[in-house]
Write a protein that binds this DNA or RNA. Structure first.
Lengths: 208, 208
DNA sequence: ACGCCACCTGTCCTCGTGGACAATACAGAA
DNA sequence: TTCTGTATTGTCCACGAGGACAGGTGGCGT
């Protein structure tokens, strides 16, 4: 539960006080440059107030310090005036989450837990808007392509293999023998004319 | 922490067993009709396996029992063969979350926590795809992302490995020894915290 | 009843992969 | 000049993957 070291970035003293209890003993920085040192220290979890010097200067997520480190960090971006477009921009810039900076402590803590575990966190409002947007202009084919020649079971096995699961873990997940997994995968490889699971992963995930 | 009563809906006994530890003493139902009684009892939290009678019949989320109750419940829909379109459909049908039915227990528990608190849960893979779909300008971030901590040579090797080349063919392509390729890849795995070339391929190609 | 197919399992065997342990050469920085 | 980082190569080893055999069950349609 947010046991990981947390870095708070805001130049708003009141906000810093509100955030103080989110983790055992969070560190405080006023500028985004603290990111470099934070990452160098081997830490990942960051809560940054987008209100930091917003007026006038370029948005925080376009600064060098952000660009350099966003990839390796789990950054929860918080805004006191949440706005869907800002959320999209900051998420696309590598942040792991976007929320209201004055959200309840429980909500913030949960969001931090989620991004600390490697997932993404997007609030109800923005997320449901995303869903509505995508729903209107439905994506393209998707599944029917690689999955069509496969049986149900082969699809399941292929799906798991394509995200890097080993034969054994697939077997345990599906309650069958490792040998059987191999048999299914062999059929998958033949049907899709693939050489190994890496090629399968590329095919399943639409690479090329 | 998922203290709320939880209803498991699946006709897969193995899955039910895997899910048994998600909450103190979860209830089990084999069909979606249990939803009515569950809501009548004043409960909200549900984990439903979309594999329930999928073949042939209409998708679970179009059945009457679902339509009647989805709004008042916090439903986490799980699929053994996750597919973006299915995810979108089920979320638009009122589910609060969509995930892989064989996801690690910790992940499932976290997802349940999130939807129990009234938020929505969408896995990293689907969510990042949503973001990409909505915001069409995304190229720069993806490129320098995984490559930043790597040296020039490591990047070259990683690039080739990520499209399925064997160590030997990479060696031939770069005019070095297979052993050297291994050394570079070892460094790549360490720097990017990856276990093998399949994970590398997924990272390089922006999956998750 | 017979054949087809999906699903499941077993034992070998070969090979690529990734890690451990070790070493050389060369660049630029302190 | 020493030191650190990059690039290079070597041997040995354990493990998983995939192929090549060779089966077993149950459903389903002709």
């Amino acid at each position: 539960m947010t046991a990981e070291p947390l870095l708070l970035i805001t130049d708003d003293d009141l906000l810093a006080q509100r955030w103080q209890d989110l983790a055992p003993s969070p560190l405080r920085a006023r500028g985004i440059d603290g990111l470099d040192a934070w990452r160098a220290a081997g830490h990942r979890l960051v809560l940054v107030d987008l209100g930091c010097a917003r007026g006038g200067t370029a948005p925080v997520w376009t600064r060098p310090a952000w660009q350099r480190n966003a990839s390796g960090l789990a950054i929860l971006a918080a805004s006191s005036t949440p706005d869907d477009d800002e959320g999209l921009a900051v998420l696309n810039a590598g942040a792991s989450g976007y929320c209201h900076s004055h959200a309840p402590a429980d909500t913030l803590r949960q969001a931090l837990d989620v991004i600390a575990s490697g997932e993404l966190w997007v609030g109800r409002a923005l997320l449901s808007r995303l869903l509505r947007l995508v729903d209107t202009r439905l994506p393209r084919t998707g599944l029917a392509d690689w999955a069509t020649p496969l049986t149900e079971r082969e699809r399941e096995v292929a799906q798991l293999a394509a995200v890097g699961d080993s034969n054994l873990s697939i077997a345990l997940a599906l309650g069958i023998t490792e040998r059987t997994v191999k048999a299914h995968l062999k059929a998958v490889f033949e049907k899709l004319d693939l050489s190994d699971r890496l090629q399968l992963a590329l095919r399943v995930h639409g690479v090329r």
